[in-house]
Nucleic acid binder design. Structure first.
Length: 376
RNA sequence: CGCUGUCUAAUGGAACCU
């Protein structure tokens, strides 16, 4: 049973829902762990209606079942639903409280995050770190630091969180100071520091960090690639790409964007052609590379080749039409798209504004507020 | 009897608008 559950979990973590489902159906017996693993697999895919139905069908549930469902709701942006479940739970533990805390924080709702934290029966270092991040992400560095100082057992994640608190708030001096004091450095610590230097334009320092790293993963390589891209050194950026052990979508999109933003569309095309497996994210990156350079025809061609058109690709097409003065086409996309983010709304508003339709832009702005779309 | 393994919460890189 344990091995069956391991297989099930492995599929779930790869996002392979079909195989996970097969495994679940084929195993000789299922225990609560199997049900929970299956629930998580469905929910992580964002199929929240299915997840809820599965949850309701479960013969018995434990805290993990509840926590899994609640975390998934909040991670998929349905914080209100997560909150409803949270308040109806038979009992609560630190896991779901921490998940709610993070959800509130990401909505900018620091009050509720604080409330959840202080109502917790036992605060552990994970929940405290989540609170630290909540303060930091909403701009309260000193409060974050206070939480940090009060955590008795700090692990690498705690230290990394404080490091990010400083770098995200552009306090490089404090970040450096903290970095030097850290008892242990992992990939995240190094990469955080590297990106901080990159953001401030300290290319040499970033490179020095990169060279000092005892080991590097794809994230570190991509961060270094991005560093060179940001300062317009495309050759070094490409060199990094060619030397990284394994390419992934993020590395490739970073390189494509770098080419597109500096008028090297041919290079972008060339790199794109070299990739065998073109996934929707990569296609979207190439599409917007064309759009940045005003090539609506090629952008459309990529767009129509895609079998899954993500919201990001729709947004890109919308603003491409707007740039060409075709407000009607932009509006058509806006109306027909089945999912909108804040970016969609802003893109449509500026489509109106850039083409002189100020009244429509204002109307849309009011409509957006009534839909409770919040800007980051 | 004890221990170990399988499910849920905290930190780093990219593409769409401003």
């Amino acid at each position: 049973l344990v091995s069956w559950n391991s297989i099930l979990t492995a599929f779930a973590q790869n996002g392979n829902l079909i195989d996970a489902q097969d495994t679940f159906n084929q195993m000789p017996e299922q225990d609560l762990i199997s049900w929970n693993a299956m629930l998580t697999a469905i929910a992580q895919k964002g199929k929240m209606e299915d997840a809820k139905r599965f949850f309701d069908e479960m013969a018995c549930r434990n805290l993990v079942s509840w926590n899994s469902l609640i975390s998934s709701f909040s991670q998929n942006g349905h914080v209100a639903e997560a909150k409803r479940l949270y308040e109806n739970m038979p009992e609560r533990d630190q896991v779901c409280a921490t998940a709610m805390l993070t959800a509130y924080s990401q909505l900018g709702n620091l009050r509720d995050a604080e409330a959840v934290f202080s109502e917790m029966q036992f605060q552990n270092s994970i929940s405290a770190t989540a609170m630290l991040n909540a303060y930091a992400q909403n701009g309260y560095i000193q409060e974050a630091r206070n939480v940090f100082d009060q955590i008795p057992q700090k692990n690498v994640i705690t230290w990394n969180s404080m490091l990010t608190a400083y770098t995200e708030n552009e306090n490089l001096t404090e970040a450096e100071c903290l970095f030097d004091k850290m008892p242990e450095l992992d990939l995240v610590s190094w990469t955080t520091m590297l990106s901080a230097y990159a953001q401030e334009g300290h290319i040499q320092k970033a490179k020095r960090i990169f060279d000092k790293m005892p080991e590097k993963d794809r994230v570190a390589w991509t961060a270094m690639l991005r560093t060179y891209a940001l300062c317009g050194n495309l050759e070094y950026a490409r060199w990094i790409l060619e030397n990284m052990p394994e390419w992934d979508t993020v590395a490739l999109t970073t390189m494509l964007a770098a080419y597109a933003q500096s008028d090297h569309l041919e290079q972008a095309e060339c790199l794109y052609a070299r990739v065998d497996e073109k996934n929707p994210v990569l296609q979207t990156a190439m599409l917007s590379a064309y759009n940045i350079n005003g090539n609506l025809i090629e952008a459309k061609s990529v767009f129509y080749q895609m079998d899954q058109r993500s919201m990001v690709s729709w947004n890109s097409m919308l603003s491409a039409y707007a740039q060409h003065g075709n407000v009607e086409a932009a509006k058509r996309i806006f109306d027909e798209v089945h999912e909108r983010s804040a970016v969609t709304w802003i893109a449509m508003m500026s489509a109106y504004a850039q083409n002189g339709h100020f009244r429509e832009a204002l109307f849309l702005f009011r409509e957006m507020n009534s839909f409770q779309i919040f800007l980051d």
